[in-house]
């Protein structure tokens, strides 16, 4: 069992001004600071990719709640990552609509192509594979979500092409910026360009 660091730094030394401002904005709309806990976790995760022990302790201090209480919240909700994740987090729907429409084959293809199982990240740090409950796109099953994008009508074949394209995009962006750490840690930050 891991023990979360108890030596507490000042949260202002850890969280960025932007993060603090975003969290304070959410808290200002709510009746209690505790109520902003989930928003705060999501905000920090959007900036850093995941919620480390240090992030957890800093957010708890900022909101005036105990670290243990916030840990209880953070580990309850599956969209809060308490471990580092890859640049792309694949959320593949494993619920019934997809199960009836070819999920098994798509999942096998992803696992085979990326050589990872559920809960794992590829060695290059590009992809993490997670299951997700029904994504609400059963008319387009099987479906997965990466960042803010749904990928409908998956097959064992087209899912490989999609993953390869994403990989190439990420590599191209890295080269263009010629800075290895310039990528957002998590594609969830990328804006939708739907409309």
């Amino acid at each position: 069992m891991q023990i979360i660091a108890t030596i507490q730094r000042d949260y202002r030394d850890y969280l960025s001004e932007t993060e603090i401002a975003e969290i304070e904005h959410e808290a200002s709309c709510l009746e209690t600071r505790e109520a902003a806990g989930i928003d705060a976790l999501k905000i920090v995760q959007a900036h850093r990719g995941w919620i480390s022990d240090e992030s957890l302790a800093a957010i708890a201090q900022l909101l005036g709640i105990s670290t243990a209480q916030l840990e209880g919240v953070a580990t309850f909700y599956n969209l809060i990552y308490r471990q580092p994740v890859g640049h792309y987090v694949i959320h593949i729907c494993d619920s019934i609509g997809c199960h009836l429409s070819g999920y098994d084959e798509v999942l096998a293809s992803i696992k085979n192509h990326l050589a990872i199982d559920y809960g794992q990240t590829t060695e290059d740090g590009m992809f993490t594979l997670l299951s997700n409950v029904c994504l609400g796109a059963c008319d387009k099953a099987p479906v997965m979500k990466i960042g803010q994008q749904d990928y409908p009508h998956l097959t064992a074949e087209n899912v490989v092409i999609i993953l390869d394209e994403l990989l190439n995009n990420a590599l191209a962006n890295t080269l263009a910026d010629s800075l290895p750490d310039s990528l957002p840690r998590n594609s969830a930050e990328q804006e939708l360009d739907h409309d």
Binding site: L30, T32, E34, A35, A36, G37, I38, D39, L41, K42, G72, V73, F76, Y77, N78, L79, I80, N132, V133
Partner: peptide, 22 residues
Amino acid sequence: TSAGRYICGEETALINALEGKR
């Protein structure tokens, strides 16, 4: 915007989630 879990659809669980709780 929630952070997952089907049980949040149960109305009293949803209220707890809105209060920042499990």
